[in-house]
Structures are given as C-alpha cells and as structure tokens.
Amino acid sequence: MNRQEFEAKNEEKWADLDLKLRLLEGGHKVEGLAKVPALFREVARDLSLAQYRMFGDRVIGRLNDLAIQGHRLFASTKGLAGEGALSFVLRKFPQAIRREQRLFWLSSLLFWGPFFLMWFSTKMDITWVQALLGPQQLSDIESMYGEEDTVAYLRQQFGSNFQMFAHYIQNNVGIDFMLYAGGLVYGLGTIYILVINGLSIGGVVGYVDYAGDPEKLWSFVAGHSSFELLGMVVVAMAGLKLGFAMLAPGQLKRGVAMAKAGRDGLPFLIGGSCLTALAAVVEGFWSAQIVPVETKYTVGIFFWVLHFLYFAFAGRGRSEA
C-alpha cells in the first residue's frame, strides 16, 4: 500500500475523528460518543504505520496532530473544583512543611538572625541602623510610631482600609514572588532578599525602641505579623530548594534535579504567598482599627499559636499523597 492508497482508504476516518475531537473540545455533544476512543486508537495505529513507512510530513503531521489532540482530551486530569484546594489546605501544605523541617529552620534562621542582630545593634550603636535605613525612612518611622497617632498617619498615607489592603497585596505578595525567583541564581537572590528584609525589619523595631513608642509599633503589627513573616519564610523555602538543586544536583542531572525541586517546592510557593495575602487582609482591615492594645496583643498571640498548631498537627496521621 503506497501513500496515495493509504490516504484514500483512511481519509474519511481521519476527518471523522478530527470533527469529533473538535466538537468535544468545544464542549458540544457528539453522536456515538462511546466509539470515539476506539476510533482514536485506530488513528493512533495509522500514525505508527505512517511513521514506519515514512509517508512524509503531510500525512504524518496531520495524524500526529490528531493523536496529540485526542491524547489531550483523554488524558486531562481535572478533579472536582475546590477539591484540590481543600486537601491542600487541610493536608498537603502542613505535611510538606513537616517533611522539610530542616529547610524551614534554615529559612527562618536566614530571616530571624539578621533581624535580632540589627535590633540588638541599636542597643549598642545607633549609627548602624541609621546607615542602613537612611534619613528619609527614619523620619517616616518617627512620624509613624512617634508623637503622631499611628492609625491617623496610615490613614493619611493610604486613604482607606481597602487601599491599604491593595497596597500590601501588590507590594508584599510581589516580594514573595521575587523571593522565589531569586532561587534561580543558585539561591543567592532568595538569601539576599530574606537577609535584607530581616535587617531592615529588625532595624525598624530597634529604631522605634530608640526614638519612638514601641507600644504603637507592636500593637499595629501584632495581628498580621505571624501571617506575613511565616509567609515570607515559607516562600523562601521554595526558592532555596531551587537553589540547592542547581548547586548540588546529587546523582540527578541538573535539569531533572531542578524539575524535582520545582515540583517539591510548589506547596511552599503557593502556601506561603497565600499566607502573605492573608496578612494583607489582616493588615488592611484589622491592624489599623482603633481597638484596645490588650485585644490586639491577644489576637496577635492567638494567630501565632494557631500557626504553630496548624503546621505541627494539621493532616497528621493522614496518608501523604
């Protein structure tokens, strides 16, 4: 059988499958739906034959496209909407954190180390933080946590609660994504952003201790601190994973190691940026409310404990899938 005979014999079948696949992809009803898989397998066999006989680009290309189209349709793996998200929150995310505990502590150390270092440096020598933050930022801190009312200052800076929320989403979640991408430079980008954040946040705390009213700062940040700082540390885990894979792929090829690190780090990227987004909600709609300081501290501690319980116990005993 030469190419012309092969084409003439099967033309009708191919056109039929092509039409049916198009209809199915568009979500339309198809007559004789039960026969489509069998038809697809027949065409797949035609493709093998055409490849073996080298019937040329035109025939092979057409059959190849049909096979890919059909495979796309039959192999689609869609679960119920929301099913994946629920099992992620209840099980997969905390399980992944527990599985990678050492990475979590490493990432935490990279943030909290510089944080406390900078904070304590203000007790010894205030010039360090002055050099780090610069006069503009220092005067901002002074007006925010100094004589002025913190909430009134934020209102004047950001307008409404909603606007604050939007600002924090854009800024903080964006930083998370850069934190992740920084892993691609052998993890250096991730480490850099993490350390710089530790230094400057620690510097702010220290400077408020020195020149402002610490209670204003703590009562403002208490509510959202757990979400924001844990979110950052967790996203950094995904970036560090990528960096390690590039630096020390072990017995795998570098490309394979990166693909594995990408897959394994995904829960940290998604989970961590969700935590940061939640932080923006709390920061925008709760932290700037006028509420007694004790309530704010209580809520803040409550959220920290909640995070601890969630990471330590959620999904424990369930099979890891």
Binding site: R72, Y180, A181, G182, L184, G189, L269, I270
Partner: peptide, 26 residues
Amino acid sequence: AGTQIGWGQSMIRNFLRMIEVFLPLL
C-alpha cells in the same frame, strides 16, 4: 506528553522568568 500544563507549573515558569529577564544572560 503535549498536554495542558497545570496551575503550579504555570506559576513556576512565569515567576522564574522575572529573574531571567532581570539577569539578561540567563
């Protein structure tokens, strides 16, 4: 296998592009 990619895969490849564009050699 020529099939549609997932949300996670799409996030990874697009977020990482930001650093690749940032460092023009990558």
